[in-house]
Design a protein around this nucleic acid. Structure first.
Lengths: 122, 122
DNA sequence: ACAAAGGGTAACCAATTGGTTACGCATTGT
DNA sequence: ACAATGCGTAACCAATTGGTTACCCTTTGT
């Protein structure tokens, strides 16, 4: 999970993940979106690759990258634990429920949203 | 959100957040858990403070830190979107528009690109 | 056969990060 | 009044990061 958190810490890499969420893309298509040089993009892709968040497939002379969103699950779950009460029994205050309220709102608006994060509806 | 992602990228800071999830703690209590020097802990706390994830309260000569878990919401939401099918981005809410506005800004800023991104779906 | 395109790697560089020790300053205890 | 405690800041240092340009290899197009 260390590598995942580190991979996400960079804004360029986060934007690359968003691009790949829509569809798989070649390196050229990705690099086109940024002001930095293509080798710089190449290294961001290497970081993402070694974190397992993306994989690549060589097609002709192009290399396509695709996202593996499942890799985010562990991090999401770690983060979501902070929305739960700390100890065994602890009363919910406004701060602790904030995260879950927002998620509930979103799910209500999107009937098909995923349920991979466990929830503890009080 | 940049600061949040960066704050979480460090393992020491993640562990500090876990300590503070249970209860508010003084700097001494926190530093006690690590092998690094107290000033090093102090700087990790400064990073967490400037990200808004924690705040501090001076009590006598001790300084207590406490967690603000609701600050994690934006990041959780961003991550959770990758579990949903792509294309829902058109469905606007505050979070999604912010991400897309940033992306559009960056792309508009370099007019050298001949075209929009080509769709090459198989 | 050869030129052009796609993309990774290497070498280098400046800026940032994360650690250290030394120090300062306010609060507490004697 | 003064020593000790709690904790932040400053100065410094090594390692990492993120960018650059130059170069190489493979694939495609003529």
């Amino acid at each position: 999970m260390d590598e995942i958190a580190g991979a996400i810490a960079d804004p360029v890499r986060r934007q690359i993940l968003e691009l790949l969420h829509q569809q798989r893309r070649s390196v050229g298509e990705i690099a086109e979106q940024f002001d930095i040089s293509r080798p710089a993009v190449s290294r961001h892709l290497r970081v993402l690759r070694s974190s397992g968040l993306v994989s690549d497939e060589l097609v002709g002379r192009q290399r396509f990258y695709m996202l593996h969103p499942e890799k985010l699950t562990q991090l999401i779950e770690w983060l979501a634990r902070f929305g739960e009460p700390a100890g065994w029994e602890r009363h919910l205050d406004a701060l602790e429920t904030e995260v879950y309220r927002t998620r509930r709102d979103r799910r209500t608006r999107h009937p098909s949203s995923s349920d991979d994060v466990k929830e503890n509806t009080a």
